[in-house]
Design a protein around this nucleic acid. Structure first.
Length: 381
DNA sequence: TCGTATGATTGTGG
DNA sequence: CCACAATCATACGA
């Protein structure tokens, strides 16, 4: 037990600076008193200087020939570690179990959905393509935008991955560094393996927080990219000829009631390769513009009618009356869903408009009425 | 390059 | 929520 005592004494001597333990250092040794005095003086000097030194220097000087080689050291340290674990570590450990951050999960999900995170190219770009295809109806000319969008997304993806890799590397480097440092220190102070473990989790948490910031900013970048590329108002594309034809067909064949049901909209959307809301938009625009043209034509017709009436003293008004004022909002002359009859009214309108040089819309001139007539005739037969 | 066409959005009313 | 009306922003043809 003598050695153990000595050890305690040394510890105490170094840490507490209590002078009364120092004489024990050379206890039991047979030396001349002046030499002992000299030694004691040296040790005192050493202790005095130690307080001014950094820990590293002190360790470098002291550990090898004092603590480190002592045979009781492991036992002592293990006891100290045990005490430590029972007091501080156990309290902290109990708080460590945390559920996964919902915010982080949301970010992760979004990144995977956008094709930034998750499996390589295939899934990612196709997800992006699907998103854009849904917005623009999968027209061939939108391919350019898609590739542009994909390129930007790939750029974001690359930045994200390189940054993530960097973080991971830095995290690992730092972790190993800290672990090594702690292992090194565990030779001179009691450090439990659990303590190192805890330190590692703390570091990982810190880096996870940084990673989350990266994820957040990546999500923001993707959102900005999306809004820029998928904002159809900014990058409007006309529907394909076929789609417009189908829509017009439906519109003119249901002119008395151009309000497609939800099912009809879905059907049209499917046929045209556009979304239901696009169909709704189209019909909304179509109705209002058609009506506008009617009223405009009507006004003009009335102007001409008035002129004509003045000129012919009340004879020719009927000739300009397109559809008549009582024909209803959508000029359903024959009162039914008869495409041909309504097309006639369109032809009449075209005639009036071309004569008056007034406002003309697509339904009036750029889409040949005969086209619809032919089409409808085929369908009706 | 300009004017028109056209798809989308916004504001309003029922 | 839907329809309508006005408006925006872009596409497109002459």
């Amino acid at each position: 037990m003598e050695d153990g005592q000595r050890m305690y004494s040394q510890q105490g001597g170094l840490t507490n600076m209590s002078g009364n333990v120092l004489p024990q250092y050379n206890m039991g040794q047979d030396e001349p008193s002046d030499q002992r005095k000299q030694e004691i003086g040296d040790i005192l000097q050493q202790i005095m200087t130690i307080t001014d030194q950094s820990l590293d220097e002190a360790q470098a000087r002291c550990r090898k020939h004092t603590l480190n080689c002592h045979r009781m050291k492991p036992a002592l340290f293990s006891v100290l570690c045990e005490i430590k674990e029972k007091t501080v570590l156990s309290i902290r450990n109990s708080q460590e179990e945390e559920p996964p951050d919902p915010q982080l999960m949301r970010l992760d999900n979004m990144l995977i959905a956008e094709g930034v995170a998750g499996p390589e190219k295939g899934g990612g770009s196709s997800a992006a393509a699907n998103a854009t295809a849904a917005a623009s109806g999968g027209q061939p000319d939108s391919a350019i935008e898609h590739s542009d969008y994909r390129a930007k997304l790939a750029q974001i993806r690359q930045i994200y991955h390189t940054e993530l890799e960097k973080y991971e590397q830095a995290c690992n480097e730092f972790t190993t560094h800290v672990v090594n440092l702690l292992r090194e220190q565990s030779r001179t102070r009691p450090i439990a393996p659990k303590e190192i473990e805890r330190m590692v989790t703390i570091i990982r948490k810190k880096f996870a927080a940084i990673e989350m910031q990266l994820k957040q900013s990546t999500c923001e970048a993707v959102m900005i990219l999306r809004s820029r590329f998928l904002d159809a108002r900014r990058k409007r594309r006309n529907f394909s000829k076929q789609a417009t034809e189908l829509l017009n067909e439906y519109f003119y064949s249901h002119l008395s009631n151009p309000y497609p049901s939800e099912e009809a909209k879905e059907e049209l959307a499917r046929k045209c390769g556009i979304t239901v809301s696009q169909v709704s938009n189209w019909f909304g625009n179509k109705r209002i513009r058609y009506k506008k043209n009617i009223t405009k034509a009507q006004e003009e017709a009335n102007v001409y009618a008035a002129k004509s009436a003045a000129a012919h003293e009340g004879q020719g008004a009927a000739g300009y009356n397109v559809g008549g004022g009582q024909a209803g909002m959508y000029m359903n002359l024959n009162g039914g869903d008869n495409y041909q009859s309504s097309d006639n009214s369109v032809n009449a309108l075209r005639h009036v408009i071309s004569q008056s040089g007034g406002y003309s819309s697509d339904s009036m001139h750029s889409t040949p009425a005969s086209m619809y007539e032919q089409h409808m005739n085929q369908q009706l037969q």
